[in-house]
Design a protein around this nucleic acid. Structure first.
Length: 130
DNA sequence: GCCATGACGTTCC
DNA sequence: GGGAACGCCATGG
């Protein structure tokens, strides 16, 4: 296992209960800014018995990246709620309130466009189109 | 070693 | 506010 992964897991473990961190932030704290996708990859390969609170990691929009239908997504939402994290209308978490580390969000307060959700997904379809 | 994929993010239209 | 495009990093075929 690469050091990155251990760093990632370490960072995630440092997320306080009742707080959440974005993939981007975790990647940055892990020492690899821009490797947000890798964070997701690492978490996907996370053992069930691991002591890593993966459910405290959400995307930049404060929403769960997994499909709502996905069992993991349901578990994540449940665990967060159990920790006192409330979801705003739309299934998004107020990063300004629950975001960790606070300083990471204090500077930017509310990420510019956060809404960007879909994205590269369409790129795949693009290839299929015409 | 190159190509495709994925729990993401930012910018541009 | 929503959608599309591009970039980033690591893994698997």
């Amino acid at each position: 296992m690469n050091p990155f992964y251990r760093r990632i897991y370490r960072v995630v473990r440092h997320i306080p209960k009742g707080r959440v961190a974005t993939y981007g932030v975790v990647a940055r704290l892990a020492g690899r800014p821009g490797a947000a996708r890798t964070v997701g990859w690492a978490l996907s390969a996370l053992p069930d018995e691991g002591d890593v609170p993966w459910w405290r990691v959400v995307n930049a929009a404060g929403r769960i990246s997994l499909s709502p239908h996905d069992h993991a997504a349901v578990v994540q939402r449940a665990l967060l709620l159990r920790e006192g994290v409330r979801f705003a209308p739309g299934g998004a978490v107020n990063l300004g309130t629950y975001g960790w580390p606070t300083e990471a969000y204090d500077s930017v307060a509310a990420p510019a466009h956060t809404r960007a959700a879909s994205s590269r997904r369409s790129r795949r379809l693009k290839g299929l189109r015409t």
